Amino acid sequence: MFDHVVFGVSDYAASKEFFLKVLSPLGVTVVSEGPIGIELFHPSSKASLGIRLKPVEKPSPLHLAFTAENRGQVDAFYRAALETGAKDNGAPGLRPNYTGKYYAAFVIGPDGHNIEMVCHESEA
Rank of each mutant, 00 (worst) to 15 (best):
G85S: 11
A91V: 07
D75L: 05
V28C: 10
Y103E: 07
L20S: 13
A76W: 01
H63P: 12
I51A: 03
H63L: 09
L53F: 01
V56I: 14
E17H: 07
E57V: 06
F2P: 13
A81F: 01
I51K: 04
P43N: 06
S122Q: 08
S45G: 10
Y98H: 10
L64S: 08
V22T: 12
A13Q: 10
G37R: 05
P55S: 07
L53M: 12
P96K: 04
S44L: 04
K46L: 09
V9Q: 07
E116A: 09
F66Y: 04
D11C: 02
G72Q: 14
K21T: 15
R95C: 09
I108N: 14
L53D: 14
R52V: 04
F19Y: 15
D111M: 02
H120Q: 09
I36D: 15
S48N: 10
F18E: 11
I115R: 05
S48A: 11
N89H: 05
G37F: 02
D11W: 00
G8P: 14
L94E: 11
E57S: 15
T67V: 09
V56W: 06
F77W: 05
F106N: 15
E116I: 02
A124D: 11
A14W: 00
T99A: 14
N89W: 01
H63C: 13
V118E: 05
E33V: 06
P25D: 15
S10R: 14
R52M: 10
G72L: 13
A76Y: 01
F18R: 05
E17I: 04
S45P: 05
A124G: 15
T67A: 15
N89E: 11
N114W: 00
D75C: 04
H63K: 10
G72A: 14
G72E: 15
A47D: 04
N89V: 01
R79I: 00
E69M: 04
H63I: 05
L62D: 12
V6D: 08
P35K: 13
K87G: 03
V28W: 00
G109R: 03
M117Q: 08
E116D: 11
G27T: 05
R71C: 11
A68S: 12
A65Q: 04
F18Y: 10
K58S: 09
V118A: 13
P35F: 00
P96F: 01
V30D: 04
K16Y: 03
L23W: 00
L64E: 06
L82K: 13
I108P: 12
G72R: 11
F106C: 14
H113I: 04
L26Q: 05
P61C: 09
A86Q: 04
P59W: 06
V31M: 10
H42W: 01
S48L: 02
E123P: 13
V74W: 02
V107P: 03
G112S: 09
F2R: 11
V31L: 10
L26S: 08
H4E: 08
N70Q: 07
E123N: 09
Y12R: 12
E123Y: 06
A104F: 01
S60Y: 01
A124N: 13
G27V: 00
R71L: 05
A80S: 14
E57W: 00
M117P: 07
Y102Q: 08
N114L: 01
V107D: 03
G50R: 06
A14T: 06
P61W: 09
S44Y: 00
F106P: 02
